[in-house]
Design a binder for these strands. Structure first.
Lengths: 236, 236
DNA sequence: GAGTGGTCTAGACCACAGA
DNA sequence: CTGTGGTCTAGACCACTCT
């Protein structure tokens, strides 16, 4: 054996993937059943099952009990959009991350914010505004409101050392999140803080995170269009 | 049994998830081993193994052979960014999708484009430019180059009936894709076609798709910032 | 060496689809 | 009724980590 032997279920997955990628098996075609794979590869049913189950989880095939396994309709490109702690992300590029703190305050929530955080009107909320820099260049303006019930120690954080995202991830275990991304122009204040023209387009990400019973945080993060892009990859 | 019995491995996963979400088990804490779970739930090792393996695939725990299973460091927020055929997407909102075709031509590839498509300089490529409308309002400007080797029948498509994305998905099975999203201003031509001011920020998605041995297509899709946003959700 | 996870087998019972 | 997938067991051998 010259080769480093790959697990049997991986070999089966590769074999099926190859047929789909090459176009030999088209969407809605039947994929060999577990029994057929057992014979073909001289493997047990559990192994064949695992290969097909994982391909189904990856979205390449569809399985229906009693009916069979078919090639999935490949009508969508999907990929993981991973939203990470910005400090970690910058560090991974081998660059230096730093933070400029613009505002750390306790405020009373207006009606809209209160509803968004699931609090009553006028409840106390934590508010932070800061700018993240990569090698001294501003790359993100972060305006965030935090629910004190979800992260009571938020205000004691030294934000130049621990980012809001990191604090929240560590103190308010994440159970749910939703986001939306759009293109927008910065406000005068945001442009000033980022050191850009107010005519320069930016990516704006609005995010809302839930931790257990509480909405933990509502944030708006602004990235200058010329200094940041989201990238992704997808492999069948 | 009043309840609809959930599979054993799901019950184990739920149990572990609960402990992580509640904060009882913190990042880097050890999760019960497969042997421990076998005893606790009176299940076989394969079942315990499956529960832990799936949690690892979901990113909630980390497993190291010989060492053990631990709660993952950052519950990084990740979610599927699904890129779909725009016709399908509009139809799903109950709206009417239509297309305005601006250009359908065969051209010679310049050096940069040729390299991007994996062709030699000056090779023939298909070029289409069109605008997608939702209820008559322009929402996407699509500028696309296609490799004739990957989709020889591309030019025969009636693009008012079948979108380029759909044609390519059906004729060039997708094996790989990469994309990047950024904020930008439209060119004069793009602004005109979209019916917007050239000062209005847009989301630009650059996409490159691979089908088998060929790069199938390189496309730039521009969305007016005020008429489109990417949305996503995540649940632990 | 003891404990951990990674893989695999040869059975088993069940639920469901389709002829 | 046959074939399909969904789950589960009780063993097994191996590779790895840690002490």
């Amino acid at each position: 054996m010259a080769k480093d032997e790959r697990p049997a279920y991986e070999q089966v997955k590769d074999w099926i993937r190859k047929h789909i990628a090459s176009g030999a098996w088209k969407p809605d075609d039947v994929v060999p059943s577990e029994a057929a794979l057992m014979e073909r590869f001289a493997i047990s049913r559990m192994t064949a099952h695992r290969a097909l189950r994982e391909l189904a989880a990856e979205g390449l095939v569809t399985r229906v009990q009693g009916s069979g396994t078919r090639v999935a309709q490949l009508h969508r490109i999907s990929s993981q959009l991973v939203i990470r702690d910005i400090h970690e992300e910058v560090a991974e590029r081998g660059h230096v991350h730093s933070t400029r703190v613009l505002r750390v305050a306790e405020e009373k929530a207006g009606p809209e914010l209160a509803e968004s955080l699931g609090l009553r009107r006028g409840a106390r909320v934590f508010h932070t505004v800061l700018v993240h820099l990569e090698n001294g260049v501003p790359i993100q303006y972060e305006d965030r409101y935090v629910n004190p019930q979800a992260a009571p120690t938020y205000m004691q954080t030294d934000f130049t050392r621990e980012s809001p995202t990191l604090h929240l991830l560590q103190h308010a275990p994440l159970t749910e999140a939703s986001y939306s991304i759009e293109a927008t122009l910065p406000t005068a204040e945001e442009a000033l803080a980022l050191g850009i023209e107010s005519s320069e387009p930016c990516l704006a990400m609005m995010r809302r995170t839930v931790s257990g019973a509480h909405v933990a945080s509502v944030a708006r993060q602004l990235y200058p269009g010329t200094r940041y892009s989201f990238n992704g990859q997808f492999q069948a």
